[in-house]
């Protein structure tokens, strides 16, 4: 388990200085608008995948600390990774949220959410952006097959 003060610092940092924030006006990006699952967070995530690699991830929207920071952190984790590796990281993240055995090493700063599963009302916040990334990665993968 990550120490609470460290978790708090990581989340605050990614909330106040979100990485990869701001959308791209570029048709080569895939895009997901995530607003249907909750009436409060409204996030759009974009992703550029080329030759099996996540070249870029970016996002923007109106969202709480947990959804902004989780989206920001995950964007840093998968950017530059192969699609397979990105999906593996996201799978481990979901395992953590679902309280299954998971590989904490690959999640790096995303370990800040290692007790999020105890907060029923925040799970959706902690997965909204990640879900968008997961969907786009899988769509790319299905298109390749």
């Amino acid at each position: 388990m990550m120490e609470e003060s460290l978790k708090r610092a990581i989340i605050l940092d990614h909330y106040q200085h979100p990485r990869n924030k701001g959308l791209k006006d570029d048709p080569s990006y895939m895009s997901r608008h995530m607003a249907a699952d909750s009436c409060i967070d409204d996030i759009t995530v974009m992703m550029k995948i080329e030759d099996g690699e996540v070249k870029d991830v970016c996002f923007d929207g109106q969202a709480c600390t947990i959804s902004t920071s989780s989206t920001s952190i995950m964007s840093t984790l998968i950017k530059g990774q192969s699609v397979e590796k990105a999906l593996m990281i996201i799978d481990e993240y979901y395992k953590m949220i679902d309280e299954e055995h998971y590989d904490a090493e690959v999640l790096e700063e995303a370990n800040a959410f290692d007790t999020l599963s105890k907060q029923a009302n925040r799970i959706n916040c902690g997965t909204i952006g990640v879900k968008a990334m997961n969907e786009m990665l899988r769509e790319y993968q299905n298109g390749q097959q």
Partner: peptide, 10 residues
């Protein structure tokens, strides 16, 4: 405070 709010979800 913002810190307390984040703490509430950990």
């Amino acid at each position: 405070t913002l810190e307390k709010c984040i703490g509430a979800s950990l």
